[in-house]
Write a protein that binds this DNA or RNA. Structure first.
Lengths: 229, 229
DNA sequence: CGCTAACTTGACAAATGTCAAAACATGTGG
DNA sequence: CCACATGTTTTGACATTTGTCAAGTTAGCG
């Protein structure tokens, strides 16, 4: 029975990009040590200030990482999607989490203890490289985020986001489906919902986009790009 | 003669924290592949948009990483000090640099080619872990930076910086020597020099600090902390 | 329908940036 | 040691951007 669970878990682990190339024997050993978690919509996985004991892999659902604030005006830093991992960096450092994490829908995830991954890193250099790559991506995203915050106006940040959402690079017209409620998108762009709404209004006035609910039709990608100047 | 150079270089490499525990034979092999660079004050090491071929270790001097901007209003992201490495993350990703790097004083550094480090990572798992830790620190700093930008006012950012500069945690009175010209510090805090100056003025008025040139005397650390709320 | 939550709009306030000028340092050559 | 030239910092007046609060409006959903 236990072997069954372990085998299932090993299969699940192998389906995660990070562990795809790890040898079966290692995955099985790892499977013994991971814990599967279920969290409901709205539930907090960890609070800012908690100490990490490992890192997480999201299997299903959606987890937001955000900075808390007294008056509930949180700033959403990142939305984790299935297959992605989070919390590795803090685990390696042993620092308390600077953000809190909350499930925005019912979610299922794996909790990988530090010990387990540390052992595995000693035996699988490919895994180490993958983790290096994974953290590097995060780092790069943060740099972009910081650049957006410090070098760009609200309209430029929105334009930038719309360009990243283009289906093909260079497309002039396309539809963007916002991945979440407008106030969530606004928070990721470090804007208030009001400002976000006003920016969309202005871009509409200029004939660059059309908004209907959560779908934004980009009419003139070139025009958006020019805003960036 | 060549062996001499290699040996010297190996010694230099071993003195860098990242390579301290790497075996002598490996360090010697690495030494063959690294290049030492000299850059003069003001010289640009790489531009935003350049493709990375490896990463850098700063031996001597000071390198700033900054976002460029048309009107020269660059935003300094980070100042690299001797012993530190930079550019690893972008190397692993193969993405063009999002920042440019400039020597703020005459500097000496090592250029480690991607190949070399990749090979070494396959053989030294301790090195991999160290690099993971190094990139994690960077990531954590960026998160803090982003939090400061998006959750804190100018005065709070300055107060936060002054607290980090405390010699011992909890000290109530201490001197802070600014590490660079005020406009550089301002840029790191994502402030204009004018705003920075005004903030220092306000903090002085409130009796929290005293400013004389590049030395700031903190009179009441507790008061600074309360600003943060 | 009617309720709730999401979104928009308007009037206003606060924070920060811009530009220009003055004050202050700092180093150099006489 | 002075006087000048250069670069840095401060100050003031003002513009701009963005946030805040309150009141609508709209849109889903039971």
């Amino acid at each position: 029975m236990m072997a069954k669970r372990t085998n299932n878990m090993a299969d699940v682990l192998s389906s995660v990009p990070l562990f795809r190339k790890v040898e079966r024997a290692e995955v099985v050993a790892l499977a013994e040590q991971v814990r599967e978690l279920q969290v409901e919509r709205g539930e907090i996985l960890f609070q800012r200030g908690d100490r990490p004991h490992g890192f997480y892999v999201l299997l299903e659902g959606r987890i937001t990482l955000a900075f808390p604030s007294e008056q509930g005006a949180e700033r959403i830093l990142e939305v984790i999607k299935p297959g992605e991992t989070f919390g590795e960096a803090l685990m390696f450092l042993g620092h308390p989490y600077p953000v809190f994490s909350q499930a925005s829908v019912d979610s299922r995830l794996l909790d990988i203890p530090e010990q387990a991954i540390n052992n595995l890193l000693d035996r699988d250099t490919q895994l180490a490289k993958k983790m290096l790559a994974g953290i590097s991506i995060r780092l790069h995203e943060l740099v972009s985020n910081l650049e957006a915050c410090s070098m760009r106006s609200s309209a430029q940040r929105v334009a930038c986001m719309l360009q990243h959402a283009a289906p093909t690079k260079g497309a002039q017209e396309y539809d963007v489906q916002l991945p979440a409620a407008k106030h969530v998108v606004a928070s990721q762009l470090n804007l208030t919902p009001e400002t976000f709404s006003r920016v969309l209004h202005v871009l509409t006035e200029s004939g660059l986009i059309e908004v209907s609910g959560r779908v934004i039709k980009v009419l003139n990608a070139e025009g958006l790009r020019k805003l960036q100047l």
